[in-house]
Write a protein that binds this DNA or RNA. Structure first.
Lengths: 196, 196
DNA sequence: CCAAATCCTTGATGGCAATCAAGATTTACC
DNA sequence: GGTAAATCTTGATTGCCATCAAGGATTTGG
């Protein structure tokens, strides 16, 4: 083992692993790319990655932990998504448009993340067809998922919404506090509890 | 005017106009591209572009008319989106994944469309960085819009949902029958009527 | 321009989930 | 491991939207 360079962090290794699954990306591509994920963040439980109204144009990789994305209405906060280990997370509209984020992102457990700036990330997408393909696949997967979810939200019957989510993401119910799932399912914690 | 080639159809002209707004696309790029939109469709009011369960992996350009995208539940159909003039429309999950469509698309007025197969379209995206950029921008715009919409659907109060949609898409209320808007807003036509 | 269908509105009633409340359980953190 | 906080469950009540129904307005298509 060479002593001249520091060993890559565990988070960088995990990110490299994720990228290794992308077709046609070379080891060199990945090595150069991960070097640009320079923003290391450690969040204790309850801490915020992004607060609503804040301009934060960073794409994050969740190495460990669990986060929720929420939208603050006047009265309450509604949960619109979660961030799991080994996935990407950001306030998407803010990341894409450059506007301040309407959403907040909060750690539900102690979480470790790696971040890359919008500028750096988009430079890779522009200059390398393989990264462009990767980002396009991310966008398509995300979009298909959101359309699925739109159905869930339109179903009038709380039981149907619960059953669809349970079928699609059973692991959610073992990791995320039920009250956030209830908000995500557009019902009160009491109603969710009675359905189970 | 040359007699050796047929004049481009009005639909092709409109599509070319839309593509002309894309940065870096050359006139030649556009000319070659639009030649692959070979599926011409004319739908009378009430007719279906795609029926649920059908495999239809075509991307459509709406030249004239108005369509609704809907999801059939056991009891009723819920409206998940609309297709306007000079915009693209498809059953997105089906177009991307190649699976049969869970959604239906129906003409609400007499509509004229142009279609391109998934295979042909993706070939352009793969081979030309400018088309890749165009498709990426489409995906990002679409995704941002869906996230906006997710908020609308999560708001518990029908009045708030109505107000948000009215602020974002006031033209909708002048073009689309209210009963479809009501379904889109997750409420009954009676409730929507009382809000106005 | 007319007839028929579709769509929109207004009213009365009932059901279901939100709300309020309290106790039980789990989880976090020192 | 022990204590405090957070979360989950169960129960009673209320309010709001869906449902059902009917009359009026608009649109469609010949």
């Amino acid at each position: 083992m060479p002593h001249t360079s520091a060993a890559p962090s565990s988070a960088v290794q995990a990110l490299s692993l994720l990228l290794g699954q992308v077709p046609h990306l070379t080891a060199t591509d990945i090595q150069v790319f991960v070097a640009h994920w320079q923003k290391e963040v450690q969040l204790p439980r309850g801490e915020f990655l992004i607060r609503p109204g804040q301009a934060e144009h960073t794409l994050y990789f969740v190495h460990t932990g669990l986060l929720r994305i929420y939208f603050p209405t006047g009265a309450e906060e509604i949960c619109v998504g979660f961030g799991y280990e080994s996935s990407l997370i950001c306030s998407f509209p803010s990341f894409v448009t450059g506007q301040p984020s309407e959403y907040g992102i909060q750690a539900l457990r102690r979480s470790e993340l790696l971040g890359i700036s919008r500028t750096d990330f988009m430079a890779f997408v522009e200059q390398n067809a393989n990264f462009a393909r990767f980002w396009r696949a991310e966008l398509e997967r995300n979009l298909v998922g959101r359309i699925e979810r739109e159905i869930d939200l339109l179903l009038p019957d709380p039981l149907h919404r619960y059953q669809r989510l349970l079928a699609r993401s059973p692991q959610l119910f073992q990791r995320v506090p039920k009250k956030y799932i209830a908000s995500y399912l557009r019902m009160t914690p009491e109603t969710l509890s009675r359905l189970r």
